[in-house]
């Protein structure tokens, strides 16, 4: 059976760290490299932070963020699929929003690089948004694809040599 997980959290700043760590922990069975783990954590942090700061605003009660992950096994590695959904204000012009350096919160020291980082650090990225309804960010990353049976990872080599 395909492995999956589903998580629903309050859109609060203190959950940013928990959310990225939870997704990284879920990816561990694919034996990701430290760099792959760092990429996943960063992309998840960007998407979740956007839900916290943009989707609901800070004035009202926190809304919720849904995080769904799925692992698709392929050959020696696999693909981690991540979907991050909010039910907030949505985005009027998605093309504009994902452009590098575009931000609607200039005063907050925001860089407008969140979507650019998600696109750079993951292999696949897409976004669907409906004003007043919410936003879904979908991202995938292939993990451990370059490994083959002939070239075991360092820790496996050690085990074999021991």
């Amino acid at each position: 059976m395909e492995n999956f997980m589903k998580l629903e959290i309050a859109a609060l700043g203190e959950n940013e760290s928990f959310a990225r760590s939870a997704v990284a922990a879920f990816a561990l069975p694919l034996s990701p490299s430290l760099m792959e783990l760092s990429d996943i954590k960063t992309a998840v942090s960007e998407a979740v932070t956007n839900c916290v700061v943009h989707a609901y605003g800070r004035e009202t009660d926190a809304g919720k963020i849904r995080i769904e992950c799925r692992i698709e096994k392929t050959g020696f590695g696999g693909t981690l699929h991540i979907e991050i959904t909010d039910f907030g204000r949505g985005i009027d012009d998605v093309e504009k929003a994902i452009a590098p350096f575009y931000t609607t919160l200039k005063g907050d020291e925001r860089s407008g690089m969140g979507f650019t980082i998600m696109q750079t650090f993951m292999d696949e990225f897409s976004i669907e948004s409906e004003p007043t309804k919410g936003t879904v960010v979908k991202m995938s990353k292939r993990i451990g694809m370059e490994r083959t049976a002939e070239i075991p990872r360092a820790e496996e080599r050690e085990r074999v040599n021991a």
Binding site: S38, S45, D108, R110, M113, G114
Partner: peptide, 13 residues
């Protein structure tokens, strides 16, 4: 141990 795009705004600030 971890930094996302927040670090960009932080450093420029």
């Amino acid at each position: 141990s971890f930094m996302d795009s927040t670090g960009i705004g932080f450093l420029i600030g």
